[in-house]
Amino acid sequence: MTATWPADRLVGLYCQMYLVRRFEERCLELSRKGLIPGSIHLCIGQEAAAVGAASALRSDDLTVATYRGHGHVLARGIDPRAAFAEVLGRQTGLCKGRGGSMHLTDMSHGVLPPNSIVGAGLPIATGAALAQLHKGADRVVLCSFGEGTLNQGGAHEALNLAAIWSLPVIFLCENNQYSEMTPAYQMIKGDSFATRVAAYGMPTTKVDGMNVQAVAEAVAQAVTRARNGEGPSYVEADTYRFLGHYQGDPGTSYRPVDEINYWRARDPLLLLAAQLSAEAGMDMRLKAEEESIEVALDTAQQAALDDPLPLRDDVWEGLYAAG
């Protein structure tokens, strides 16, 4: 990591992490009130990975995320109201209520469909990248997934494809130490996911996933490589999800309290706020930023709650191309 970035730049990242955190905490509340049908998979604790990575992208780059993707898609600048509306199943949602929490897509912001099939996103990301090469565009594709995904065969097929075709993809592994309720290192021999990926012939980096600047810099390097036509890279961010695998899982029965506490003390928002607080007046500034994000989220959430549900007669919409 290089020298600490200027405060203004870091405040920007803090605000995005705060937005993601509060969006998700609000989702959890809505879910507990029974207003969000089905499961939500929160990335609370992992915001630095999503926000840091997205900050390294150009606005026309592409993102392929997963069911735990709220952070990745919000960090691309999508409209929180449309995101709320989607998780609430409204017609005004990003996907008109057809996708829900796991599939927040916004093609106008370079956000391809996040996937709820573990490992499916990696091959899809290679295709998005292939299309850029084909068009002569210098866009890159950020493909994020969890460490457990590296036990899925199709993921390995995709890593190999990206390597042999030198595709502009950044594979971002968010190693949150668990795949659902299973400790990650029980499911691989040895202690490194990165060494497996390195075998495909691409550079791999491990980074502190609780440090947003560290993630941003590692991904930025991979982006530069990809944009220069030098092919894919793998970045692994060590991180932790503070809550359960989904809203119905307390996340405590299979994880030691000491471990949870260790990681909670490394909360990416707290770490960054502490670092920034050395600057005079910063605490006030962050407070003010938080308040304005809160107001914006209030408005977005209320608007989404007031938004109309899809019409039953439109159940076919989107299935086939028109005509």
Partner: peptide, 27 residues
Amino acid sequence: RRVLDTPISETGFLGCAVGAAMCGLRP
């Protein structure tokens, strides 16, 4: 570049086609 030999990775190259199709190609 238009007629591509692939590895024996049906999931890999079909997924690649899916991603490419969403980004304007017709695989």
